[in-house]
């Protein structure tokens, strides 16, 4: 059995099985949904940041585009399954429009991407577009509200995203991406089509976020532009990915399970100390583990899936 199949069987499938079974063990399904959602988003972030080095601060733009793609389709009477396809299409379309941003790099790319997400948010929230997006008045999808079905869709999406990361980590294309991340000039001279490879990773990442946005819209069903384009969604996806370790399959997964677990535990058990504890935790980790938790193992020469 190859390394990729091992990762698929030992990590991806058990994660999907546990997530699918978890609602039978724990009643707060929305909390479980958020875990699944952030694992998906962190892995989507991983696809672009972990493999190409591009850090999209405005990742929530794709998420919001997907949420509104789903909402507009669902309000038009489209079946939720087809509406999810529309959500994915919205993300891909936005990704294509924003492809020129890939000419930038580092902080410039991050800031330009953030501005692009804000621009999309303002367009969606514009009262002049209310007949289509409902503008600032928010959308209500009570006609298609199905929390259990949307949860299972989110779990399936998480599994597919993790499988894509396995493919990237073990396939020729993923190696090409990592090569261009480390040294674009050398990668190009070795025959890697830089523009094509980056664009595919970018669109893959956009597709994941927009499908996650679609599942979120289906699960939440009543929301405003502020909800779908909430910057904290980007921040969480970035922090969880960095905390666990970008470029790996396990890193973002561990990042979400630990950090989002702690986030919820503090928020529920000792909410009065929330910001103090959570802030201190992140500061300590940035200071002492800048490459994420998995670096504890990789520094010792241990390969982390």
């Amino acid at each position: 059995m190859g390394r990729g199949w091992r990762e698929l069987c030992l990590i991806v499938l058990p994660t999907v099985a546990i997530a699918a079974w978890a609602p039978n063990l724990y009643g707060n399904v929305l909390l479980l949904f958020n875990f699944v959602l952030y694992i998906t988003l962190a892995q989507g972030m991983n696809a672009i940041y972990g493999f190409t080095g591009y850090l999209p601060f405005g990742y929530v733009g794709f998420f919001g585009a997907g949420a509104y793609g789903f909402a507009i389709a669902a309000m038009a009477g489209v079946h939720p399954a087809a509406a999810l396809a529309v959500a994915g299409g919205a993300g891909i379309a936005l990704g294509l429009i924003l492809t020129p941003l890939l000419r930038l790099s580092g902080a410039y790319f991050a800031i330009a991407n953030l501005a692009a997400a804000q621009a999309v948010y303002q367009v969606v929230a514009n009262p002049a577009l209310a007949p289509i997006t409902k503008g600032p008045y928010g959308v209500s999808l009570s006609a298609v509200f199905a929390p259990r079905a949307s949860y299972l869709v989110a779990v399936a999406l998480m599994g597919a995203t993790m499988a894509a990361i396995v493919w990237l980590r073990n396939g020729r294309f993923g190696l090409a991406l990592m090569a261009l991340r480390d040294d674009p000039v050398s990668a190009a001279s070795a025959g890697v089509n830089i523009v094509r490879a980056r664009t595919i990773a970018w669109l893959l990442s956009a597709l994941v976020a927009s499908l996650a946005g679609g599942a979120f819209a289906w699960q939440i069903s009543v929301f405003y532009p502020e909800t779908a384009f909430d910057m904290s969604i980007s921040i969480f996806a970035i922090v969880f990915t960095l905390f666990g370790g970008a470029g790996t399959l396990l890193g973002p997964l561990i990042g979400v399970l630990l950090l989002y677990g702690v986030y919820n535990w503090i928020g529920i058990a000792v909410p009065q100390y929330f910001q103090l504890i959570y802030g201190a935790l992140i500061v300590v980790l940035v200071l002492f583990l800048p490459n994420g938790l998995v670096s504890l193992l990789t520094q010792r020469g241990i390969r982390v899936p």
Binding site: N28, L30, N34, I220, E226, D230
Partner: peptide, 10 residues
Amino acid sequence: PGTAATLINQ
């Protein structure tokens, strides 16, 4: 809002 949804469920 996402946190609010989770906590209402809680």
